[in-house]
Design a protein around this nucleic acid. Sequence first.
DNA 1: TGCAGCATGTAATTTGTTACATGATTAA
DNA 2: TTAATCATGTAACAAATTACATGCTGCA
Lengths: 195, 195
Amino acid sequence: MDVKTVCLGLLSIQPASGYDLKKQFESLFRHFFPAGYGSIYPALADLAADGLVDCERIRQAGKPDRKLYRITPAGRSAFRNSLAGIEPRHRLRSEFLAMIYFADQLEADRLREVLDRRIEELRAAVAEIDELEKDPLATPTSGARFVAGFGAAVAQAAADYIEQNRGLLLAHRQGRRPRRSTAPEELQAGGEQGL
Amino acid sequence: MDVKTVCLGLLSIQPASGYDLKKQFESLFRHFFPAGYGSIYPALADLAADGLVDCERIRQAGKPDRKLYRITPAGRSAFRNSLAGIEPRHRLRSEFLAMIYFADQLEADRLREVLDRRIEELRAAVAEIDELEKDPLATPTSGARFVAGFGAAVAQAAADYIEQNRGLLLAHRQGRRPRRSTAPEELQAGGEQGL
DNA sequence: TGCAGCATGTAATTTGTTACATGATTAA
DNA sequence: TTAATCATGTAACAAATTACATGCTGCA
């Protein structure tokens, strides 16, 4: 499932322009399926070329024209087929966790900063999602509410874990310790044991 | 931070071949920073070309040659600089959540299947990570243990959320409708709505 | 006989990100 | 006057995935 399919799905709920879709991608979807104009506009063009959506150009006074896209019957069934047919994946790429994996090569101050920033981001996400959940325009369906609740619960768990376990990373350190040499004592190559 | 940088980081802990690194990417890293041979081998070649790692070819009886990579002093400082310099991101793209957003366009049986499968995956991840956490070879540093604990905690929270809130998605539906096919009826749906 | 493990890599393709390009209106 | 909002899109670039390509050993 790519950006194109999600656009089609959003259009199955209501007609929208690329600009409108971008706003939806910026509210709830931002937290689990981000997309920018660079993906959305080409997706819409493809969808129209495939006959899965129709496009109506709307003139506006004092504003640029809008292109309002509406899903077609063919689009609706294509979308349902793709929901029925694909095995959904959950892909994560976290530079944050990768960095923390190597925490012992980070300065203590820098480490604290990275941890604190992540906690802030997560708490901000929880707060933002909680707001969306209260607004029936932002979460109109049970699916939307489920997803919002999921995001908030997981972000909350992540923030709590970091807060409660940061001591594991900072325990054996003294605040900022000026080291005058980086003794590189490398491990010997012989062993194959790896992980 | 890309695959190249993570490879360099892993080599900062111990020398390894591309094949060895792949195994590391398959154990803990798989859960937050997946990478395949197609990224790893080119990364290693780049690193060597930049003088950040050295490569020793090792002949083996009855097995293909290995190329053992060792980080250089330049590589070590390049790695620390990149840890100090970048703002780490946490990127998620979940087709699973996107699909659930559109749950009302999914058949009830299909929806249950998707939900159940995801719970299974999450529980399997928790179990796998718990094993890694017990093994000091798999989680040798405090950073590794922190990351493992994080992954397990978040996966656990996700599984719990799905299990406790699936009722939100299934509540207004009929369970699986009794079909008058030749197949013998299994248990009649009674408990879907009571979370 | 067939598969899994060991071990290396390349090339084509897909996909998405970032920067670029335009330009009017409205509110601070 | 500055920034934000509205509104469209393209093009260059970066990155990773997938498939391809090879070949020996040991086990069931």
